[in-house]
């Protein structure tokens, strides 16, 4: 096994607001290997986006990384001087966001913005930059790239803008591309194409991808490994097949059960997760999911579980785990 390109160790990012300290990311650790596709799933406020922003030290006031290490090829990004972080951003680790329109400058040509992304890190002549920009637009499957390079962002459709953002992200051949909800603002048919593109690019360029999304289906189509986050913590992690076919954390399981599936028979009721996501200023005692968990036991109320191995390469932070819960359920029925 190769050395990880990125190691996040016990990351804590907190927001110091008037109402109290929001523990947005509370002790997250994971590794990313070269060329890997890693999905981080969870609902709004679970800390997935803050984790991504923390990796590039882009967390805005009043947020701060208060603990942990983020090792990029062995060097800690958390303690790095600002200049060095700026150098890593866009060159070694690129990031694309949900809304491509607000990430692009409306008064500059798309091609120019891609060239700019390259020139920020390497000295190249205008001519080389232009041909490279065209090549990048071709790589993200934008038709008629030679003329499109002269277009302004508003002349692109939503899907094309996101392609342009990806092209910009790839401009400096980064080792990691972080995509934060890259398809959420797009229509399904366009979403499918962008996901296909990311999958192809991952294979062509060997760029590792961290995909951040709330959509389980999107993860299933693109990622090899998945982290499921809830209330600032990773509650389950493992290979995508394990997570989808044999989820062990009740949250992962419930989430999968609560989505209507196109391929399943129409059920009369969806399984819903009752209650609300917790307040991250005063998270619940014990397991953070226990107030909403239908399988909780007495221990869950006061004892906070950490990630425990539950299968090959799979870990869940749960005292019960679905294997035991469903077995008991079966017994109860019999």
């Amino acid at each position: 096994m190769t050395a990880p390109v990125l190691q996040v160790k016990d990351l804590k990012t907190q927001f110091f607001t008037d109402d109290g300290v929001v523990k947005a990311v509370d002790g997250v650790s994971f590794d990313l290997h070269p060329g890997e596709t890693l999905g981080i799933v969870g609902e709004s406020g679970c800390g997935k986006s803050v984790t991504a922003l923390s990796i590039l030290r882009l967390v805005q006031e009043p947020g701060r990384i208060t603990n942990g290490q983020i090792l990029f090829k062995g060097t800690d990004i958390v303690t790095m001087p600002d200049d060095d972080v700026r150098d890593i951003r866009g060159k070694d680790i690129a990031m694309i966001f949900q809304d491509p329109l607000s990430s692009l400058n409306p008064v500059l040509k798309v091609g120019y913005q891609i060239e700019e992304a390259m020139e920020a890190h390497t000295r190249i002549s205008g001519k080389v930059a232009l041909s490279r920009a065209i090549q990048l637009l071709k790589q993200v499957r934008i038709p008629a790239a030679e003329s499109r390079v002269e277009d302004y962002p508003h002349q692109f459709s939503g899907g094309m803008r996101q392609r342009a953002m990806i092209a910009m992200g790839l401009a400096n051949k980064p080792s990691i591309l972080i995509a934060d909800e890259p398809t959420t603002a797009l229509d399904v048919t366009v979403q499918a194409q962008i996901l296909e593109l990311l999958r192809d690019l991952n294979q062509e360029t060997k760029t590792a991808i961290i995909l951040i999304t709330h959509n389980m289906g999107v993860v299933a189509g693109l990622c090899k490994r998945v982290l499921v986050m809830y209330a600032g913590r990773i509650v389950e992690q493992g290979p995508v097949e394990q997570i989808f076919h044999d989820p062990q954390h009740p949250y992962t399981w419930s989430l999968l059960q609560s989505i209507p599936r196109l391929d399943a028979d129409r059920k009369d009721r969806l399984l819903s997760i009752e209650g609300l996501p917790p307040d991250l200023i005063k998270p619940p005692s014990g397991c953070r999911f226990h107030p909403r968990c239908r399988f909780r036991i007495e221990r869950c109320f006061h004892d906070d579980p950490s990630l425990m191995d539950v299968g090959p390469d799979q870990a869940a932070a749960c005292w019960v785990t679905m294997r035991r819960a469903l077995a008991q359920d079966g017994q109860a029925r019999a």
């Binding site: 009721r269 399984l271 819903s272 009752e274 209650g275 609300l276 909403r292 968990c293 239908r294």
Partner: peptide, 14 residues
């Protein structure tokens, strides 16, 4: 707890 609620009974307001 945690039964599907439907039209909620007073005991289980979301």
């Amino acid at each position: 707890m945690a039964t599907a609620p439907g039209v909620a009974t007073p005991e289980e307001y979301v």
